[in-house]
Amino acid sequence: MRALTIVTVLPELLGSNGDAANARVLAQRARWAGFDASIVEVRAAADLPDQIDLVVVGSGSDTSLITVRDILATMTEQLRTWCTAGIPILAVGTGWELLSWGIELGDGTVVEGLGIVAGRAVPLPERATDDIVVDSKFGRLVGFENHARGYTGAEASPLGKVRSGTGNGAVAAGTGVEGLVMGNLFGTHLHGPVLARNPALADHLLATAVTRAGGEYVPGERAASVDAIAKAGRDQLAARLGLPSE
């Protein structure tokens, strides 16, 4: 099978909280599974490679929202094409918000998004800065959330149900949801980076990409020890929050 190409978009501007490192997680797990994988750092539309198998859009600061939005806007057609084609896309934090209809800021102004996914980011009563635990079809997901906005109006499925934390909005404990899944596009508030702490989600993205490229993905033996460490971290967090282990 041909080598996988993993695109990370604006890694300097969208690399807060280690989010750009999700591309490195995908590349390493692909190599452990026996596939060649390269990471292409895209800072402008001209940098986009001809062949793309996975895309990572990380999170950045509000001070660079307009700058990032304007750069991403030059790639809107490509992003829409990737979504339609089923290329796996992971969008975290403000990267996800900028793919939406728009971002409502605390002062009432609105930053127009690219309109690729339904919904919009809206201010939370208080900034969410804490650990988050989510139940999903990929098993338990954990991360650290650090965001001033929730998410509303999504017409897609959530990534999972919040067991502890804020996720997409401040609602009654145990009833909230986190993230968005639209086809093979995954939006989330989870930092950590999310794929290092939750390898099952990374493997789902990789399996999708490898299948599209004509192969079959099976996690490599070297992934087992890393996965055990990640699971221990999730169980430790769950115990601290009074939740059962996986």
Rank of each mutant, 00 (worst) to 15 (best):
R2K: 14
E12C: 00
L13R: 12
G15N: 05
G18I: 06
G18P: 09
A20F: 10
A21K: 11
A23M: 03
L26M: 03
Q28T: 12
A33N: 00
A33H: 00
F35E: 00
D36H: 09
S38D: 07
S38V: 06
I39V: 13
V40R: 11
V40K: 09
E41C: 06
E41V: 03
E41N: 11
A44Y: 07
A45E: 13
A45K: 10
L48M: 14
P49S: 04
I52H: 07
D53L: 08
L54K: 02
V55F: 08
G60H: 02
S61Y: 09
S61I: 00
D62Q: 13
T63H: 09
S64W: 04
L65D: 13
L65E: 12
T67M: 13
V68P: 03
V68G: 05
T74H: 12
E77L: 09
Q78P: 06
L79H: 01
L79V: 02
W82G: 08
T84P: 06
G86D: 08
I87E: 04
L90E: 01
L90I: 03
A91Q: 04
V92H: 07
G93R: 01
G95M: 01
G95H: 01
W96K: 00
E97V: 02
W101R: 14
G102T: 02
G102P: 00
I103L: 13
E104V: 15
G108H: 04
V110W: 13
V111P: 02
V111D: 06
E112T: 15
G113K: 03
G113S: 02
I116P: 13
V117K: 04
D131A: 15
D131W: 15
D131S: 15
I132T: 07
D135E: 14
S136N: 07
S136E: 06
S136Q: 08
E145F: 09
A148S: 15
G150N: 06
Y151R: 03
T152Q: 15
G153P: 02
A154S: 15
A154Y: 09
S157Q: 10
S157N: 08
V162N: 05
G167Y: 13
N168Q: 08
G169K: 01
G174H: 02
V177E: 09
M182G: 02
N184I: 07
T188W: 05
T188S: 13
L190S: 00
G192K: 01
G192R: 01
G192Q: 00
G192D: 03
L195Y: 03
R197V: 04
R197G: 05
L201Q: 05
A202Y: 05
H204D: 10
L206D: 04
A207G: 15
A209R: 04
V210N: 06
T211S: 14
P219R: 05
E221L: 14
R222K: 13
A223D: 13
V226F: 12
D227A: 11
A230P: 07
G233E: 09
R234D: 05
R234Y: 04
D235T: 09
L237E: 11
G242F: 00
P244E: 06
E246L: 12
